[in-house]
Write a protein that binds this DNA or RNA. Sequence first.
DNA 1: AAATATACCTTTTAATTCTAGGTAGGTGAA
DNA 2: TTCACCTACCTAGAATTAAAAGGTATATTT
Lengths: 113, 113
Amino acid sequence: MFNRELLKGSTSLVLLQLLNERDMYGYELVKELAKRSEQSLQVKEGTLYPALHKLEKQEYIQCYWQEQEKGPARKYYKITDEGKNVLLEKTKEWQHFVQVMNKVIRRTENDSI
Amino acid sequence: MFNRELLKGSTSLVLLQLLNERDMYGYELVKELAKRSEQSLQVKEGTLYPALHKLEKQEYIQCYWQEQEKGPARKYYKITDEGKNVLLEKTKEWQHFVQVMNKVIRRTENDSI
DNA sequence: AAATATACCTTTTAATTCTAGGTAGGTGAA
DNA sequence: TTCACCTACCTAGAATTAAAAGGTATATTT
């Protein structure tokens, strides 16, 4: 539980989704998620960087360095075509999962499906 | 991620919800979830029994044995008042989590919240 | 008599996340 | 100018969790 793949996929689902909007660097992803999610999705750096490296190894994302006029250089990540396909699949899985959870959770009268 | 508490809580959320409907025994919970969830929430026995024991230790559920005319005796579980409170909290957390996920996932145009 | 189904359980393995660090460059205030 | 802080990257280890894989026992069915 829950569908092991789905669980495993949840961090990567979020990361792929964000990178599908635009290229971002690690530190930015952390801040962006914290901002957007009101703590519910907050990914810590110790979670994020290994997760990014795994996605990179799977070739769902690619990275490139970008020097900054101010501050340290940034390692930007970009979603690949394969990454986009995976994102689609994972999004469907997520939606199905939510449907099922809601069936189980919101039940009050009827007892079998 | 996800909100560590939420992740941890997801199995117990489902179990508490089922036991809030009626008293059930372990084997029944496994079968019931498999039936209801179309495989998405299928909890395996190796997951279920430890989870039940933990909930019992936390005093969110209580158990009692019931001899059967046919077949092995069953250990029924019943949700406690404390368990019902926890269930309410966890349900709210889950709903909040889904909202936030949907904000992140369903985004296509607007880019900041 | 053997296979199957019910019903309970635990140990080990695998995966994931967090904690708690570490490095380094740049900025701003005292 | 020195010290604190922020940006930005990273990893090792601990903790948690679920699943896999096994085990026990009773009852039914073939």
